[in-house]
Computed example of a mutant assay.
Amino acid sequence: MNAPKDFHYRMPRRIGGQRPGAHRSVTAGSGQEFIAHQTLFDRPDPRRLDLRASVRDPEQRWLVRVTRQRAGIPVYLVADVSASMAFGSTATKLERLAEFARSLGDSSFWMGDALGLLAFDRTERTDLMLAPMRSRGAGLMIAEALLRSRADQPSSAGLAEACMRIAGRQALVFVASDFHAPLPELGKAFDLLSHAHVVPLVIWDEVEPQAPDGDGLLALRDIETGRRRGLWLRPVIRRRWKDAFAQRRADLQKMFADRGMRPFYMTGAFDADALSRYFFEAV
């Protein structure tokens, strides 16, 4: 496989945490961002002594500089491995997701953040779970785990189960799926991640939004349930197909907006530059 191109991400707000990293934090420590002066008695750290401020102090106190340190944050990829992710024209959605995972591994490594994996189909896939690790090979391990998984379960209802593991934690969470599950089910899962910064990664194939060209009888098979049916293609059906997909996108957009989230749509190959722009716009 070709080497993945990494992307750049920044948290849009300050984070907590004691482990040093690249993100703005609320934690006082060894950093370059000045907060205030305190007396040497209140903060006994002679290394931070500010002689100029001490000389100007009307009470003639020894003053030290208090600064904020930068901190790291755990990064999670919550991946849908249900049957619909096996669909694809030039490459399956799962292969596109693995491509993203490899890029995320390199990106989180350069940022000094730990990267972990949670996966789901009808239930949580604990066999694919990887604890957060600070390793340059974390993305490759996740990509290989995703490609080895069998996408044969006819549902993605396990999203809430997977999200329960990180509910209440401060983290950067990428939830990757085609999001064809019912909206109330998706909403309940995302409500569990209110303390995290969540990036919904909507993975669609290039051929999904529009019906095939031409008129005639089309044999269809539901990739999730395996159910077969026939559909007579004609202009009105193609228009309804396109309108239904546009409505689905609008409904997803509203569900995410109601929770303060902004989705990233990945139609076709993963574009690292586009995801970098997504984070720059958010910040």
Rank of each mutant, 00 (worst) to 15 (best):
S30K: 13
P58E: 06
R43C: 10
P12A: 02
E59N: 15
L63T: 02
P20Y: 00
V64H: 02
Q32D: 11
A22T: 13
R43N: 08
S54Q: 07
W62I: 08
F7T: 01
V66E: 09
G16P: 08
I35C: 02
D50T: 01
P12G: 04
P44K: 05
R48A: 15
V66K: 00
A3D: 13
R52E: 00
Q38C: 01
I35S: 09
S30T: 14
R10I: 12
D45V: 12
R47V: 07
V64F: 01
R47P: 05
A3G: 10
R13C: 10
S25L: 02
P58C: 14
L40D: 01
F41L: 15
P4V: 00
Q60M: 09
Q32Y: 06
L49N: 08
R47K: 14
S25P: 00
T27F: 07
Y9F: 12
N2G: 12
R19F: 03
R13M: 07
F34E: 04
Q60N: 15
A28V: 12
L40C: 06
L51D: 07
A22I: 00
R56L: 08
Q60K: 15
N2L: 11
L51K: 05
E33H: 08
D50S: 03
Q32F: 11
D42I: 04
P46Y: 05
Q60I: 05
Q18R: 13
Q32G: 09
R43V: 07
W62E: 10
T27N: 15
G21P: 03
A22G: 08
A28F: 14
M11T: 06
S54P: 06
S30V: 10
W62G: 05
S30H: 13
I15L: 05
A28N: 13
P44W: 10
R47E: 00
D42R: 07
M11H: 10
K5Y: 06
V55A: 08
D57M: 09
G16E: 09
A36M: 13
G21W: 02
D50Y: 01
A53P: 04
S54T: 07
Q18Y: 02
R24S: 04
S54N: 05
Q38A: 08
A53G: 01
E33R: 09
Q18K: 05
R24K: 14
D57F: 07
Q60E: 12
